[in-house]
């Protein structure tokens, strides 16, 4: 399996965000996306997730499923947390389990140390806890490709360690991760992609 992108150009609001981006990612590899604000890190992630369209270029997941789009084989964690404050922590995850198909809620909660908070309304969670709840979705449902946009924002040291463990498990299982971030992820990336160098 291999994620290959060639010659990607992205335009938003009449402005070219990046052009001619190429990348290749193999199972077990972590890629770190970096670059100044506005260099198109988020745009590239959304583009791979299928939430955005490229003006030119091609994007393929070689060896992936024929029937599913790349987005349907990937997890995307954005800045906002898709967490419903009127539902309990558990109910939030249970919905995503039902909707995305499969997975064990208790394991996912345990992975980010949320088990104790399972029955509390998600509206009471602190920012960091919401972040962990949003991240636990990627553990809940196994998917080969993770697209993470600033995943470590708001995480404390112990949560960061858990996050690193979760990433290592995904890589050991043959998964792929692309993470956009300014700060160290807690694990050395296998590949780096610098956006916004020279337009």
């Amino acid at each position: 399996m291999e994620l290959v992108a060639q010659d990607l150009t992205c335009e938003r609001g009449g402005r070219i965000v990046f052009r001619n981006v190429a990348l290749s990612l193999k199972p077990g590899q972590l890629m770190q996306l970096s670059g100044p604000n506005g260099s198109g890190k988020s745009s590239l992630l959304r583009l791979i997730a299928g939430l955005n369209e490229a003006q030119t270029g091609s994007l393929t997941l070689k060896g992936g499923s024929e029937d599913l789009s790349i987005g349907q084989q990937a997890h995307y964690v954005a800045h906002q947390e898709p967490v419903k404050s009127a539902l309990s922590v558990e109910e939030n995850l249970a919905f995503w389990r039902d909707f995305l198909g499969g997975g064990d809620v208790d394991d996912a909660l345990a992975a980010f140390d949320l088990s104790r908070l399972a029955t509390y309304p998600a509206g009471l969670l602190s920012a960091g806890q919401k972040r962990r709840l949003a991240l636990s979705r990627i553990v809940l449902v196994p998917r080969v490709l993770w697209l993470l946009d600033e995943p470590t924002v708001g995480l404390d040291t112990s949560s960061l360690e858990r996050f690193v463990k979760v990433m290592e498990k995904q890589l050991d299982d043959g998964g792929m991760i692309i993470a956009a971030t300014h700060v160290p992820l807690g694990r050395e990336p296998d590949l780096r992609l610098e956006l916004g160098g020279a337009p």
């Binding site: 140390d113 908070l117 509390y120 009471l124 602190s126 806890q129």
Partner: peptide
């Protein structure tokens, strides 16, 4: 109850 819950959540 809400306050207690918030307090409990606060210290993780």
């Amino acid at each position: 109850i809400r306050q207690i819950q918030i307090a409990e959540i606060g210290d993780r």
